[in-house]
Simulated scan of single mutants.
Amino acid sequence: MASQKRVGVVLSGCGFLDGAEIHEAVCTLLSLDRRGVKLVATAPDVEQLHVVDHVKGAPADGERRRVLVEAARIVRGQITPLSAVSGRDLDALVFPGGFGAAKNLCSFAVEGRAMRVLPEVERIVREVRGAGRPMGFICIAPVIAARLLGPEGVKVTIGNDRDTAAAIESWGARHVDCKVEDAVVDERLKIASTPAYMLGPWIAPVATGIDKLVSAVLEMA
């Protein structure tokens, strides 16, 4: 009998404007859980770029929150600091999106093409890549794959946003337009991506695309 696969899910907070997109995160966790994997939810223990009031859609002055603490809300407290997770111990790794992926896991939201990836995030991506294991990147998170694996010519999608696609290709990666219900798979590098809420418009089509991504990731694991 095959051993249970261990799949890491890297969260970037809680709430699409300043952390992980909650629908994407839950759809990812549900899709993985239904396939019987061992979930390893994780997040970096760093301060968020800022806190956004999700009613007003604007930054909340004076508030400060930590990514790990906020991400723990999504997984009922069952979360591990990213610093304590080794990519070599995982069979696969998935990054849900949300602005937190572009604000807390990397600096794309602020620096665009000059973006930097959080060192802990870069470490785990390179460990998983070095072990030849698959990864999935959802919504805006594929910019992380493109920035780190662009020199290898990784193929990803963020949907069809021209400016983001141009940034992705500026790093040597290849962008492929994709519908929300579909996923793009780079079988050579074992990378899957799906647009999710880069296109929306709501939960059902986003969930369909994420389920296809999860299926593709586990088939490569």
Score class of each variant (00 low, 15 high):
residue 109 A to L: 10
residue 11 L to T: 05
residue 49 L to E: 11
residue 174 R to E: 10
residue 148 L to A: 09
residue 201 P to W: 10
residue 101 A to T: 09
residue 98 G to R: 07
residue 120 E to N: 04
residue 213 L to C: 09
residue 104 N to W: 05
residue 118 L to G: 13
residue 98 G to Y: 10
residue 85 V to K: 06
residue 92 A to K: 07
residue 71 A to F: 02
residue 189 L to G: 09
residue 46 V to S: 12
residue 211 D to G: 13
residue 151 P to H: 14
residue 2 A to G: 06
residue 209 G to S: 07
residue 178 C to H: 02
residue 5 K to D: 00
residue 52 V to S: 07
residue 83 S to L: 12
residue 175 H to P: 00
residue 106 C to I: 13
residue 219 E to K: 15
residue 137 F to V: 04
residue 172 G to E: 02
residue 58 A to F: 02
residue 149 L to R: 11
residue 185 V to S: 05
residue 8 G to R: 04
residue 111 E to C: 14
residue 195 P to F: 00
residue 64 R to F: 04
residue 208 T to K: 15
residue 88 R to I: 03
residue 108 F to L: 12
residue 25 A to S: 15
residue 169 E to G: 13
residue 210 I to M: 13
residue 163 D to Y: 01
residue 218 L to R: 11
residue 52 V to K: 07
residue 207 A to V: 13
residue 22 I to N: 05
residue 36 G to I: 10
residue 91 D to P: 12
residue 189 L to V: 15
residue 79 I to C: 06
residue 48 Q to K: 15
residue 40 V to Y: 03
residue 60 A to F: 05
residue 186 D to Y: 04
residue 71 A to Q: 02
residue 38 K to G: 11
residue 103 K to E: 04
residue 44 P to C: 11
residue 49 L to R: 09
residue 164 T to Y: 00
residue 125 V to W: 09
residue 196 A to N: 03
residue 8 G to F: 03
residue 30 L to I: 10
residue 43 A to M: 11
residue 137 F to S: 02
residue 204 A to P: 07
residue 190 K to S: 10
residue 47 E to N: 12
residue 70 E to M: 10
residue 15 G to F: 14
residue 1 M to N: 02
residue 50 H to G: 09
residue 149 L to I: 13
residue 47 E to H: 10
residue 54 H to F: 13
residue 29 L to G: 04
residue 152 E to K: 14
residue 76 R to A: 15
residue 163 D to W: 00
residue 166 A to K: 03
residue 63 E to H: 11
residue 97 G to W: 00
residue 137 F to N: 05
residue 137 F to Y: 07
residue 28 T to M: 09
residue 95 F to L: 10
residue 126 R to H: 15
residue 130 G to Q: 10
residue 21 E to C: 09
residue 209 G to A: 10
residue 110 V to W: 07
residue 42 T to Q: 02
residue 137 F to E: 00
residue 148 L to P: 06
residue 211 D to M: 14
residue 187 E to H: 14
residue 28 T to W: 04
residue 176 V to N: 01
residue 79 I to E: 05
